[in-house]
């Protein structure tokens, strides 16, 4: 940001940048909230569903020469396959284990997958996935150009959040909640707990894949890029999910966008002298939200 730009201008710029970076966080947060609602697990592998999807799409595009749309489909399939495999091989056998064991297990999955990426795909370390369209300035908002890619992210976010919110108001959503609260009773009324589990991990992996495939083209990508590092979305996504209440789909969206905005406020000139101002602001606001509303912005007090 150029020095001398008025504070209000800086604020509005930060707001726009915040919303467009927060869109990816919100997508990650949606997947985290879904898995948490369905199985009470903090899923550290959520962002890796996205990274795997990106590498698969990249390979389909660059090495197999498939058309862009097909390559995206290949990516989504790879991400969803990883989600289903994680559920089948890790989550289901540990069904009765304490939730903290599962948390560690998902972290293990993430580290394993990142390890494989470093092993198989670190040369070159930085790669570029083509964007959906090359239009970098579809609109200008407060002087910030917003690319097609960014707009697609926000549209996909809106559509998936609305879909999930509707789903949890439907009988199917009720069955997911029932399976997580009382699996035995859920079986007894005819809800297959296994099927519910596969379904939720599959959909969560789909959300992760979308987050990866849509955000990778914004800069370059490298092993584990969506989990950690400059374009990491896992920790901001978690923060957003918790701010939003951990069980609320709209909460995940609001929380994710909020984290994006707060983070970009850390770039204000007034904070120039403070190293790490962005994370400082994000975690300070997380703590404030948790102190004032422990159940999160849109979470229910006893849920």
């Amino acid at each position: 940001m150029v020095l001398g730009v008025s504070f209000v201008d800086q604020l509005s710029t930060a707001l726009v940048i915040g919303v467009i970076t927060g869109g990816v966080y919100a997508l990650v947060a949606l997947g985290l909230v879904l898995v948490y609602k369905a199985s009470g697990v903090f899923n550290f592998a959520q962002a890796e569903f996205g990274t795997v999807a990106v590498y698969a799409a990249y390979a389909a595009l660059e090495f197999a020469g498939l058309p862009y749309g097909i390559a995206l489909l290949v990516g989504v399939s790879a991400g969803v396959a990883m989600g289903l495999a994680t559920e089948r091989l890790i989550i289901r056998p540990l069904f009765d284990a304490p939730r903290v064991t599962l948390l560690v297990a998902t972290a293990g999955v993430a580290l394993l997958v990142i390890g494989v990426q470093f092993w198989r795909a670190n040369d070159p370390a930085l790669r570029v996935l083509a964007p959906i369209s090359n239009e970098l300035e579809r609109v200008r908002v407060f002087g910030i150009s917003v690319s097609d890619q960014r707009i697609v992210i926000l549209l996909v976010l809106a559509a998936t959040a609305a879909g999930l919110a509707l789903f949890f108001r439907s009988p199917g959503g009720l069955a997911v909640l029932a399976a997580s609260q009382e699996p035995t009773a859920a079986e007894l009324v005819g809800v297959s707990v296994r099927r519910v589990s596969s379904l939720t991990w599959g959909v969560a992996a789909l959300l992760g894949s979308l987050a990866g495939l849509l955000s990778a083209p914004i800069s370059n990508f490298s092993p584990g890029f969506l989990t950690a590092g400059a374009s990491g979305a896992l920790i901001p996504g978690f923060t957003g999910a918790v701010i939003g209440g951990m069980t609320s789909m709209p909460g995940a969206v609001v929380g994710g966008l909020l984290v994006g905005i707060v983070e970009s406020l850390g770039g204000l000139n007034a904070l120039e002298g403070i190293p790490g101002a962005r994370s400082l602001l994000v975690f300070a606001s997380l703590l404030v939200v948790l102190l004032v509303r422990p159940q999160g912005l849109l979470g229910r007090a006893a849920a």
Binding site: A175, Q181, E182, A186, A302
Partner: peptide
């Protein structure tokens, strides 16, 4: 019973 769901929702699930 599904402790965090309402009486109505519990019954609805009973009829799954």
């Amino acid at each position: 019973v599904f402790a965090r769901l309402t009486v109505e929702q519990n019954l609805q699930l009973g009829g799954w």
